[in-house]
């Protein structure tokens, strides 16, 4: 089976994630879009593991998942703190630091 559909799908997911980060306002949604980008990377890694016949890509996908989980811990802590302080998780509201 050709690997092209998988790569196209992963590129589409990556693009959705990147566009989402740039356009969405809610910090949680922005963060979910980042996770989507990481998962697009995972899909590409696994596809390439299949095409190149090596295991490195599958192993890397596991590491990326673990890192993404650790990132959730840190990220949600930060976003929760901001939300409790400001009663808002909008990335546009946090604008004290500028210019």
């Amino acid at each position: 089976m050709s690997e092209t559909p998988f790569l196209v799908l992963s590129a589409i997911l990556f693009t959705i994630g990147a566009v989402g980060v740039l356009t969405r306002r809610n910090a949680i949604v922005v963060f979910m879009c980042v996770e989507l980008m990481l998962n697009a990377g995972n899909l590409a890694l696994i596809t390439f593991a299949r095409t190149t016949g090596t295991l490195d890509g599958q192993i890397a996908a596991f590491f990326v998942m673990v890192v993404a989980a650790a990132e959730v811990v840190v990220g949600l802590a930060i976003i929760m703190t901001i939300f409790r302080t400001r009663r808002s998780a909008s990335v546009d509201d946090a604008s004290l630091l500028k210019y």
């Binding site: 980008m37 890397a60 703190t81 630091l97």
Partner: peptide, 23 residues
């Protein structure tokens, strides 16, 4: 806190690019 959120979101965004480039 605002600095932490900006750094985190943009940093995570850039690691997304890094992972895809790595793949």
């Amino acid at each position: 806190q605002e600095a932490a959120m900006k750094y985190f979101l943009l940093g995570a965004f850039s690691s997304g690019f890094f992972v895809y480039g790595l793949a």
